[in-house]
Nucleic acid binder design. Structure first.
Lengths: 210, 210
DNA sequence: ATTGCTTAGTGATATAATTAACTTACTCTA
DNA sequence: TAGAGTAAGTTAATTATATCACTAAGCAAT
């Protein structure tokens, strides 16, 4: 099995291309060149071609790419040909926002279970899903064969939730709690730290100092 | 003025180190080595030293770094020696979550104004700040000399809001709307696309295919 | 068919970032 | 105060990523 290493930056760009192609397709455009994609998402044409070249040949020389066809290929590459069962832990403000975030369902991420330890919240229905107590996490997530967990709890309990998700068999975790989580290597982990993003900005705003 | 290029990855790590140092300092630990920091945040010791070396010499050979001192230096580097005035546009679920996000204030990001175009929301007070109509954005943001804008509106109107922020004089924009925004080069822009993060995960979960 | 134009695919080159290895400096002990 | 041990700082090597420039392939017009 060929396992050539693909840069994460490439994956992120593919995701961006795919969103752009949705837009282009909606306009009824049939064919698009690497240059036009590049222009649309703000990268170089060579970058677009290189990114795609990791996965095959999707275009026609002298012509460009068929929009629908390319879009389908990229979705397949990103693993979005299927839906994904997602569990969300933590129904604070951020958890609530994530639970109702349209972008997830549009891309095939279906939140199939939601957990919180606040007795006031447990038993209520949010977005069609009943909030369950954390104690039942392992049981429910394992039974549903849920592949992805989203952690939106305070940092102090994030590692505990991550451990529970791991034993329940999730393959990937998206963590919104600041701080470092430890998970076994076979579980994919990504951290989104909202404050870090602001700090990169403030650094750059003042960066003429260096 | 020396303008050597510093990798963005370095800035992100500095932000992570700084959070870790807060924790270490709270435990009353006085001195820490690059190896211990590395261990704590999951990178290599050489990486820690390299990252810091861009900005000066903060440690003592044979000893390590003074925790408080290093922490202070990193905050200074990140531009967090001062508070930042932030404006938030869009009070949907995500906007509400961001508005009440503790991590921002802790790091010196003060949300000084909030805008929405829903008449039901305008005039209400959220987290001590009155929600104002978008029409008054330019006036208020300019008057407050707000440096950072957070966009949490639907994609369709994100560019329009970005334009308004730019003319109001913000130096940096954190955008949560999917899609590409155009801003002049002197304005720093960062995009946080929540679905992209999930897509990197799903790619990696299925990546043995390549 | 031939020519010119366009654009994907690709190998070579350049740049950037990370890791490793080495050098210097400080502390502590005998 | 000499020597062992430790850990920061720094230079060099390696690896990864992005850019460039070329080649090949298809299309349109004559």
């Amino acid at each position: 099995m060929k396992t050539l290493k693909i840069p994460e930056a490439t994956i992120i760009r593919l995701s961006v291309y795919s969103r752009y192609l949705t837009e282009v397709d909606r306009k009824g455009i049939i064919t698009i060149s690497s240059g036009e994609v590049a222009e649309g998402v703000g990268v170089s044409p060579a970058q677009v071609r290189k990114d795609l070249a990791y996965f095959g040949e999707f275009g026609t020389r002298g012509v460009g790419y068929n929009v629908k066809d390319l879009h389908r290929h990229i979705l397949k590459i990103l693993g979005l040909a299927q839906d994904w069962s997602v569990t969300l832990i933590g129904l604070g403000n951020l958890g609530l926002a994530l639970n109702s975030y349209k972008g997830f369902r549009e891309r095939g991420f279906i939140i199939t279970s939601v957990f919180d330890n606040d007795p006031q919240k447990v038993g209520t229905i949010v977005n069609g899903v009943e909030v369950m107590p954390i104690e039942q996490l392992e049981e429910i997530v394992a039974a549903n064969k849920t592949q992805i967990g989203i952690i939106a709890v305070p940092s102090a309990v994030a590692q505990d939730i991550a451990d529970k998700l791991v034993v329940s068999g999730v393959k990937a975790i998206l963590n919104f709690a600041p701080g470092v989580l430890n998970v076994p290597p076979e579980v994919e982990l990504r951290n989104v730290d909202l404050a870090v993003n602001l700090e990169v900005l403030t650094f750059n705003v003042g960066a003429q100092r260096f």
